[in-house]
Amino acid sequence: MKIKVDRKVCAGHALCAAKAPDVYTLDDDGYCNSDGMTVPPGKEEQAKFGAAYCPERAIVLFDAAGKEIR
């Protein structure tokens, strides 16, 4: 599972990292810097939970075939 973060839309709420700390990391200013990262195996549900919490809907997840996960 791959993470795509729209950095232009991310507003630094930092809820992704709060809700899914094993998946998302923040830069020094508190904005998500997990764009392009692969979700660690077994953490897929956490990744979805963190993405669902993003108030800006800035995080989209893709499966191995490159299909968007909803």
Partner: peptide, 20 residues
């Protein structure tokens, strides 16, 4: 609830800087 979506700290580039 699974997700408690809210905008108590606003949205967009002006998101409350004091939110954390």
């Amino acid at each position: 609830r699974d997700v408690s979506q809210h905008y108590a700290f606003g949205a967009g580039p002006h998101r409350c800087i004091g939110s954390h």
